[in-house]
């Protein structure tokens, strides 16, 4: 039933950052993720696609244990980052989340100044030794999120006063400010207009140089544009996982083909 085609031919060329094996997620009695095996590469953009409710966001939230905040949610199987089981009882989710940053569907800046939005993470993790250190972290985070030029003159203005696309890039800057190794993005462009989407996509492509980026998206065009690897989820199963080009041009599974050609989803 879970006859996921193994596309491991070019996995060998890069390091595996995250590997999940036999991953199951239950919401109460609902079996939301069924036996997912996946190896996510470093310095690569991996896109999760699939129809609504297929479990792609749920699986994404397993990767930094955001599902811990939901009482009824239960995760089984093992998920390793750099070979370490993140569901090991010794792992503190707070430390994990500093290493695995996350950007959410709706831009959710804190109702504080732009500066404080970025500085919050480094502050609570003690990354800055002095005020000027912190200033540098803020600047470099904003630069990496390609928003520095737009906000450098108003760092003390509230982050909620920015436009939607700027807010989302601010959230990305906030996520990279804690020096994560993996960046999870849960439909980061779904609340943005096409221009802002283009900016964020461009940014994602740049971020690939330093991070392993996992992005959940509803838009197949977006997956095709930004990702190198694509995983297709359907009804809680990982149906197919492989090179983006191959998934979109030559899907192995009937369900993938139906989704890509618009017959399901």
């Amino acid at each position: 039933m879970y006859d996921t085609p193994k596309v491991e031919n070019d996995v060998a060329t890069t390091d595996i950052k995250i590997s999940a094996h036999g991953c199951q997620v239950y919401y109460g009695d609902t079996h939301a993720i069924k036996d997912v095996d996946i190896d996510i590469e470093d310095t690569t953009v991996t896109a999760f696609i699939g129809p609504s409710g297929c479990g792609k966001s749920t699986f994404l939230r397993c990767l930094n244990r955001m599902n811990d905040t939901i009482d009824v949610c239960r995760v089984e199987g093992d998920i390793k980052i750099d070979g370490e089981d993140i569901y090991d009882p010794k792992v503190d989710p707070v430390q994990l989340r500093a290493k695995v940053g996350m950007v959410f569907q709706k831009p959710n800046p804190f109702p504080k100044s732009i500066y404080d939005n970025i500085a919050y993470g480094p502050r609570i993790h003690g990354l800055a030794k002095s005020k000027s250190d912190l200033d540098d972290i803020v600047e470099s985070a904003l630069r990496r999120a390609a928003i520095w030029d737009e906000v450098k003159d108003r760092l003390l203005a509230p982050g909620t006063g920015l436009s939607g696309g700027q807010q989302q890039r601010l959230c990305i800057a906030r996520a990279v400010a804690t020096e994560p190794e993996v960046l999870l993005m849960d439909e980061p462009c779904s609340a943005l207009d096409p221009i802002a989407t283009a900016q964020v996509e461009e940014l994602i492509d740049e971020l690939r140089g330093q991070y392993s980026v996992v992005i959940v998206t509803h838009s197949m065009q977006q997956a095709a544009r930004v990702s190198q690897k694509t995983a297709f989820f359907h009804l809680g199963n990982l149906v197919e996982y492989g090179d983006t080009g191959q998934i979109f041009t030559n899907p192995q599974d009937q369900r993938t083909e139906s989704y890509i050609t618009g017959r399901i989803g």
């Binding site: 930094n64 955001m66 959410f104 800046p109 804190f110 609570i124 996520a175 804690t178």
Partner: peptide, 21 residues
């Protein structure tokens, strides 16, 4: 809004930090 809690937890704040900050 829960998105604020998510945002705080997402950057690695503990539960208590997200509540009090």
């Amino acid at each position: 809004p829960p998105s604020i809690r998510d945002a705080a937890l997402g950057v690695g704040a503990s539960k208590m930090q997200s509540v009090f900050h």
